[in-house]
Design a protein around this nucleic acid. Structure first.
Length: 665
DNA sequence: TCCTATGCCTTTCCC
DNA sequence: AGGCATAGGA
């Protein structure tokens, strides 16, 4: 048995070999959280627990995948542990019990843009927004609905606290919410939030189902518990209601999902959920050198809420993090490229052991251009996924029509391609088809219209596709061929999109059937790298900080630490949100094992409005920053003084602060 | 009535 | 850059 408990420290071992019952593991960054969880699972299996009786709930698909891999290695190939995101677990449970909740097991999952599309339709049906009145956009509306669900609050409460500008529109939001719920039920679709809501409902109102699910899940483990919302906490507790075997692992200092309803109270209140809840704290950091931890501690020390954590490393030595004082984004891209190459050549660090972390996916745009020019291969995590690109969704819309001719959203998408066919006509057409006993596109009533030929062509295509229902590769090829001819009419930048269409065949091969291809595409979107392998195995990682949680690299460069970028401009005026940005910086810093670079471009051009900077309030508020980092400045850069006008008082204050920290400046 | 061109406004993070 | 309202044309 490959389980080597003596490699663990005492606290970890206590958690791994704990007896049944509730257990809270507080695990600071890099303290072996993943290792502890995976050992726990492996240990349970070794004790004779059936893998399928273990449920391991995580936040990202990647974390689930990685942990299950490790468990499998440790146990010599044990399979069948039920792991995954809350949403994926909920999907599987709901497919089994859908009938109890008024759904068919074949429900499909709306991804964000699908859901927005549906909300957008309802918005215009209800006549909101027009005539001089500025109503919330479909994205905002969905955000409000989602927030209410995820924080268990009413729409009114959410609007008043988060969107005061729409506080007067409560009745309209409620009307939209009602109709949105009706439509989803009618069409047999659910959105991400519904997955949690429905599972929670199943567990709270169907006692038999709750008992069955709980009994089948003898040991429930939850990773990143600080990022669970109320619904998820309730789901986890109810899953453990029969036996009380619930182990949750988390770190309140790494709570970075309040924006989507995470509630830190869950981890703080956890011990009250169960009698005799054990608590174990992991403090020994095995990941980073002490100078990196010193900076991490410094970031945390300035947090408004007191976190009494102090990360310690048994490893001595190591260089201090480097703070780069840069003129602008161009200088930033230059320096990062230089650092990547230097670490690669001088320190012998493969690119695969290096990462560039960003607050928002687009912050790396300039760097990506330089990397491409320099021939450094990279993979980008976070941001747009392959299956979320417009042209890929277009092709999938055609497939969805074959699978379900009543899919109104898919009709809307497809009909929108035709010149002369606007929203109104699309609505009429889609409604007519959805309501017909035999759903089928009939172009005849539109003979006099400009788009008649298009409708005929589409109808013919759909007939051809239906004939290939059981030959997915052929079906896909037919759909792609038809779509590709129209592509230049639909997307101006069609050339770069063509390549992706060819890659679709790969997905078809992998999925096998149309149902499998369409099922859960929303939950499991395909990454660019999966369909366009670069052929390199030494890949640099570019990732959002959110997506980087739980991962680590030898060298990490954090980009654009500049007010408005990181911290995000949305957070600047909101103390709570600024605290979340601070925790986000803590997460970013603690990803690094040995080398850490912080990029502080003094001037960053935003898409609109003035350039922002100089400075980063998150860094400036760290006591003794100058003791914790080495400051380096570059000559040159595209920025020249005078472009920006005179600094205001706040800016002057920052400049003064910078002088203190950086030296002359 | 319905479609499209134009101009204004917003813009994160993830399942 | 893309969504959305609004104006003006078919």
């Amino acid at each position: 048995m490959a389980l080597e408990l003596d490699l663990l420290n005492e606290a970890q071992r206590r958690a791994v070999t704990a007896p049944d019952g509730a257990h809270l593991v507080i695990a600071g960054a890099g303290t072996g959280k993943t290792s502890t969880l995976t050992h726990r699972v492996a240990w349970l299996i070794e004790q004779g627990v059936s893998p399928s009786a273990i449920v391991l709930l995580t936040f990202t698909r990647r974390a689930a995948h990685e942990m299950l891999e490790r468990v499998s290695r440790m146990t010599g190939g044990a399979r069948g542990v039920r792991g995954g995101t809350f949403h994926a677990f909920a999907t599987r449970a709901l497919r089994r019990h859908a009938d109890r909740l008024g759904y068919t097991p074949a429900f499909t999952i709306l991804d964000r843009s699908d859901a927005e599309g549906l909300v957008g339709m309802i918005r215009s049906e209800l006549g909101l927004g027009g005539k001089g009145r500025r109503f919330a956009t479909k994205g905002t509306i969905l955000g409000v609905l989602s927030r209410a669900v995820n924080t268990s609050r009413t729409l009114e409460e959410v609007l008043e606290s988060q969107y005061p500008q729409y506080a007067g529109d409560v009745a309209d939001f409620e009307a939209i919410a009602r109709r949105y719920a009706e439509r989803k039920q009618q069409q047999g679709v659910v959105d991400f939030d519904d997955l949690l809501v429905l599972l929670d409902r199943l567990l709270s109102t169907h006692d038999e189902a709750r008992r069955a699910l709980s009994e089948a899940s003898r040991h429930v483990l939850v990773d990143e518990y600080q990022d669970t919302n109320r619904l998820q906490a309730r789901i986890a507790a109810r899953l453990a209601s029969v036996h009380g075997n619930l182990m949750v692992v988390g770190d309140e200092a790494q709570s970075i999902y309040a924006f989507r309803g995470a509630d830190v109270e869950n981890i703080l209140q956890f011990p009250r959920l169960f009698d005799a809840c054990a608590i174990t704290t992991l403090e020994e950091n095995y990941r980073s050198t002490q100078p990196i931890l010193d900076l991490a501690n410094g970031v945390l020390a300035t947090a408004a809420q007191g976190y009494d954590k102090h990360l310690r490393s048994p490893r001595r030595g190591g260089a201090r993090p480097v703070l780069w004082d840069l003129a602008d984004e161009h200088a930033q891209a230059d320096v990062v490229l230089g650092e990547l190459l230097r670490l690669h050549e001088e320190e012998g660090l493969p690119f695969a052991e290096q990462a560039v972390l960003v607050r928002a996916a687009h912050h790396s745009a300039l760097l990506e251009v330089l990397l491409a020019e320099a021939g450094i291969p990279f993979r980008k995590v976070g941001g747009l996924r392959f299956t979320e690109a417009a042209h890929v969704k277009d092709v999938f819309a055609l497939l969805r029509l074959v699978a379900n001719p009543r899919d109104v959203l898919a009709w809307f998408r497809v009909l929108g391609w035709f010149e002369g066919l606007g929203a109104r006509t699309a609505q009429t057409l889609a409604d007519r088809i959805a309501d017909a006993p035999e759903p089928r596109l009939d172009p005849v009533p539109w003979q006099s219209k400009r788009f008649h030929a298009d409708l005929v062509s589409l109808a013919e295509l759909l007939v051809q596709l239906e004939a290939r229902l059981h030959d997915l590769p052929d079906l896909l090829e037919t759909a792609v061929a038809w779509y590709r001819e129209r592509l230049p009419l639909i997307h101006e930048d069609w050339k770069r999109r063509v390549r992706d269409l060819e890659a679709l065949g790969l997905l078809a091969e992998r999925a096998g059937t149309l149902e499998a291809l369409l099922a859960d595409l929303a939950l499991d979107p395909v990454e660019q790298a999966e369909v366009h392998p670069t052929g390199h195995d030494d890949l640099l990682t570019i990732s959002t900080v959110h997506s980087a949680k739980g991962l680590e690299w030898d060298a990490v460069q954090v980009l654009q630490l500049s007010d408005g970028s990181f911290p995000s401009g949305f957070a600047l005026d909101e103390p709570d949100e600024l605290e979340e940005e601070r925790r986000l910086l803590y997460v970013a810093v603690t990803r690094a094992r040995r080398h850490l670079g912080l990029m502080v471009p003094r001037f960053v051009r935003q898409r609109r409005g003035p350039v922002l900077g100089p400075g980063c309030v998150l860094l400036e508020s760290i006591d003794d920053l100058a003791q914790l980092v080495d400051v380096r400045r570059t000559a040159g850069g595209a920025y020249t003084l005078g472009v920006r006008g005179a600094p205001d008082a706040a800016e002057r204050g920052r400049l003064a602060r910078f002088r203190d920290v950086f030296g002359d400046g």
